[in-house]
Amino acid sequence: MAELLQFISSGLTVGAIYALVALGFTLIYKASDIINFAQGEFVMLGGMTTVFVAMAGVPLPLAALIAVVATTATGLALHRFAIEPARGASPVVLIMITIGASIFLRGVAQIVFDRRFHSLPPLLGADPIQLGGAAILPQSLVVLASATAIVTLLWLFVDRTLLGKAVIATAANRLAARLIGVDTRRVVALSFGISAAIGAVAGILITPIALTSYDAGTLLALKGFAAAMLGGIGSAAGAVVGGVLIGLMEAFAAGYVSSNYKDAVAFLIILVVLISIPQGLFGRAKVERV
């Protein structure tokens, strides 16, 4: 029982991070049909920038804020200088551009930062909380609370603001959105900015638990992508559920099977989803109207 509780708590924690990464994928995909494979680098930039700004003597909360702003700026720059000039190209070309951007950002991080692993002090201290025999890290609670807050804010944004509705409108019907006067380029830019910000926050939250390095984004991106696929690409609720499910399955695989196979879980899920439920749990099969 204590064991199960332990696995659940660690599964939920990483699952929340995967959910945030998956949300980043979803947001950009909805607005532009692009799968942004540089999403993981946003996560890495969030963690690494915080580490290095904090090392320079800036207080941690301020360093985290600087990291989020810098990563958001990177996301906007990626859109402005790499995606926007290729406007009109097929989604496959745009996806390849994001893969290139991902490699580029990793390379730059290697030079600007370094090639070592880094950590951050946890926000609420490192002493585990004992709960039913399981030891829960206070940082886990910070991760869960922050992820919940981000999901809620995002939901309020799309459900309660007209700008959010313009984003939904653009996702639902880009031509009609342009015809009513929505500047869809700005909507896509906005989706890159928000996705980058969410990725950065995820990166800052996970660093005290999982360490970070210049190439930490690759694996996180793949797992977030698996989560988005499992939930149904393009579905925000699916991204959250998919992320949590993958986190839990990973924790169970690591606990009950072997931690060597932990990382294989996400890939196994991608395969199973592609073969048996390509539209994902929450996705709708695309219906072409003639």
Partner: peptide, 29 residues
């Protein structure tokens, strides 16, 4: 659109997931 030209596209193209009211509000974007 700002200059004063609006189009009702072929096939209606309403924003299906959004409410009727939101569709109308977005018309005045």
């Amino acid at each position: 659109v700002e200059a004063g030209i609006s189009q009702v596209p072929e096939g209606r193209q309403v924003f299906e997931p959004l409410s009727v009211k939101d569709n109308l509000r977005l018309g005045a974007w």
